[in-house]
Design a protein around this nucleic acid. Structure first.
Lengths: 334, 334
DNA sequence: GTGAAAGCGCTAACAA
DNA sequence: TTGTTAGCGCTTTCAC
């Protein structure tokens, strides 16, 4: 990489002249500016990012910590973050906590050494289970703002972007009830995280309002979802509706229904939290609750970048942005 | 963030003393070392990464450019990269080219300003179509090593990690033939990228060896894969085998078969390139060609980090590592 | 209009 | 054993 120093030497001017010329300073004569710029272009000069970061004490880099990159929703949020960040000249450093508290802590500390200007994260399962929040508070106290999305800690003062899981599931369940379904089961692989619990509550509320009996089926880690849903259908011939807290369960619920001669959506309706591209893994396609993952990501990035701008100023109040879900009807519901 | 300067001031010693003490230099007395370390711990001192990078002219950061983060395979490779990189004290900056040549170029240039020590990437679709490779060569010429994975450019001299797509598909097709299948169709959504073409060739070879008639169905961007496969079954009642170049096509092929009263795997066998977690989106589960995405990622990271170590030394020959696929049988084949 | 010098935080050669 | 100094690449203030 060419440096200012080298350009200066070759042009027989000082380093500061080159710097100013490249930054279009009025101080420098038109002619010198031109000469400098030409040589810079010739040598493909690019200001050294690291030196700039050191000088300006900001890296234009965001640390993103996500629990699981193989989760389609989280990947899509990451995509949204990357897009928005890029738009504002920020890069993202990605760490994967793998649902582990230790890894989450380590990532936070590792990057809190000047590598990034702030964080965007979704909390690891283990962290939520153990209800640990000190590492977040410490990071914020160090002057590194955090924006949390999806799985958030309410006791940490920071910006947040969340999905209205409770209402989304409530409405989805309600819509099955309105179809005339009476034996609606809730299937979830994510009972252990906050959003999973919220979704279950939304389902429960809708069911209880009708004085129906809630029926919750949990798929634990390592379980074979297909087997569990098979057993479910086998033991409960009267099931006529499924609300799935995750995408795989919904897909399987549809594809497995045929094994029991249940026609979808004639005999049974299925709704799942999922995304368009996964929804066509079933025949008929799954009716989904879209969470607008990309938007969640871009919103989170926006919030963080906004906060980074007003650095030093008295912190305004923190905001919690709720991204509304959309029910996208396909042929798995009436 | 606390700096050496502040610690030095508080301890009434020089900055270099503090630095040396923290780095366990023999030069410094046991006692001073202890004092320094205690205060450092107290203040939670962490050496500023940016300053270190500037000083040592390396960032311990890898730039990763992937075409599509919503692609499960690519995400998983990313995961493998992150794991391996972390193990060696490297962070990753992720850029998403979104299959665009422009974005790929931009990312490469953006990070080639001292932000990263090297790159790991898979080539964008547009780049492959237009057969552009100069931006890669330029980057390498600048002294930033590149490791390519999956979709690689053979004319660029760098380390590569690839899947043996040709043989994998050949064998998969062969295995269907050995089941007695005679009308095997190849379905692909990825005809436009190198690996897609290789897979098609592998299929063709196996088919032609039997003097069967190849039958290739391409799903273009924006097409409804379900409709296309439906039409396929409708017009070709005798299809008894499907080899899918991507995971969705395989899943759909299974789930759609029932609409035509075709029993899987009795009447029709299906194999697809996919991963374990997606394979259970179909009933019965999809028999898959596992590409060991995580391993591809960790191998790529390993190659890059190795090369970064021997920096300055005469470049050894570049290697191309082939990661073998595994056929994981489920109930969609006999 | 141009250049010298300081300083961001750190390491390391050299001096004391 | 400890301190001084230079320098990584850059910006910016202040002299000239």
């Amino acid at each position: 990489m060419v440096t200012l120093k080298q350009l200066a030497k070759e042009l027989n001017v000082s380093i500061s002249t080159v710097s100013k010329a490249l930054n279009d300073s009025e101080e420098i004569s038109e002619e010198t500016r031109k000469r400098v710029k030409e040589l810079a272009t010739l040598y493909n000069y690019k200001p050294n990012k690291v030196a700039l970061s050191l000088k300006q004490n900001k890296t234009k880099t965001i640390g993103v910590i996500i629990p699981d990159i193989l989760n389609y929703f989280l990947s899509k949020v990451l995509y949204g973050i990357e897009r928005e960040a890029n738009k504002h000249g920020y890069n993202i450093i990605t760490c994967i906590s793998n649902e582990s508290l230790e890894k989450e802590k380590a990532s936070l500390e590792l990057l809190a050494n000047g590598s990034v200007d702030g964080f965007i994260l979704s909390i690891a399962e283990e962290t939520q289970t153990k209800n640990e929040i000190n590492h977040f508070k410490d990071t914020i106290a160090q002057g590194l703002p955090i924006v949390m999305f999806d799985r958030v800690a309410h006791d940490v003062k920071c910006d947040k972007v969340i999905v209205d899981d409770f209402n989304a599931t409530y409405s989805a369940t309600k819509s099955l009830i309105n179809e005339g379904r009476k034996h609606i089961v809730f299937v979830s692989k994510i009972d252990n995280i906050s959003v999973g619990k919220l979704r279950e509550r939304g389902y429960n509320k809708a069911i209880l309002e009708e004085s129906f009996q809630p029926h919750v089926v949990l798929v634990k880690k390592g379980d074979d979802a297909q087997q569990i849903i098979k057993q479910l259908y086998k033991k409960n011939k009267n099931i006529d509706g499924v609300v799935a807290a995750d995408s795989a369960s919904g897909i399987i619920a549809i594809n497995m229904a045929r094994n029991f001669k249940k026609k979808v959506p004639k005999d049974i309706s299925v709704i799942g939290f999922s995304s368009k591209s996964v929804s066509n893994h079933s025949v008929p396609k799954l009716t989904i609750i879209r969470q607008h993952a990309k938007k969640i990501g871009s919103k989170a990035a926006e919030l963080l970048i906004d906060r980074l701008k007003t650095n030093g100023e008295p912190p305004q109040d923190f905001s919690t942005k709720i991204v509304k879900t959309t029910l996208v009807k396909s042929k798995s519901t009436l």
